[in-house]
Amino acid sequence: MFDLKDPFNVIIGGVGGQGNVLASRILGEILIGQGYVITIGETYGASQRGGSVMSHLRISKKEPFSPLIPQGQCDLLIALEPVEALRILAPYGKPDVLTLLNTRPIHPIDVISGDATYPEVSKVIAKVEQLSLRVWVLNATEIALEMGDPIFSNIVMLGALSTIQVLPVERQAFEEVARDLLPSRSLMENLRAFDRGREMVKEIPSKKVPLA
């Protein structure tokens, strides 16, 4: 049985088009099925065309919370993109934050056009390790691409989440919610994406730097 801090604050962060909003909704429905009270806040708008997006999930056994997680209060970060992980961990992180990370970068348009540079991915991951108590990684985009469409990355990430023993997410519960929220013709593929995430995620040792 999971004994969650109350409220338990989850941020799902990524880039517009990665399926942030759908991932937060599926996770929310799964947790409601477990008897939790959920509030989700989204930050999007003009950002949906390639901008940074963030979903805040506040999970409680008792009551609904306001939709925004205050800075320094994130318990679990699910990052669909490495630089977005850092962008969120800095203001929202805290000493015992946990991070589940998709290691495949998406370059911002200014990097694409050469006006800015994307930091080395290994350096980004090293920073994530320094900022988090525990870190799990996988290349969810690559896995989704192998399946034929990067659109499945968010579901691969949810599959990974179901094995790291941080939140009560079971395959059975995912299947039920997926039947409700996802198009029926892609149900089998989504289940396979979920399973691939379960297989491929691995924990990397944290290099947590104690804060002065």
Binding site: V15, G16, A46, S47, Q48, R49, G50, G51, S52, V83, L86, R87, L89, A90, P91, G93, P108, I109, D110, V111, A116, T117, Y118, P119, K123, V124, K127, Q130, L131, V209, L211
Partner: peptide, 16 residues
Amino acid sequence: LEKMVADLGLSVRRPT
């Protein structure tokens, strides 16, 4: 924490 990532110079993601 913000200081720790400042040196990486994360560029803003503008929509396109």
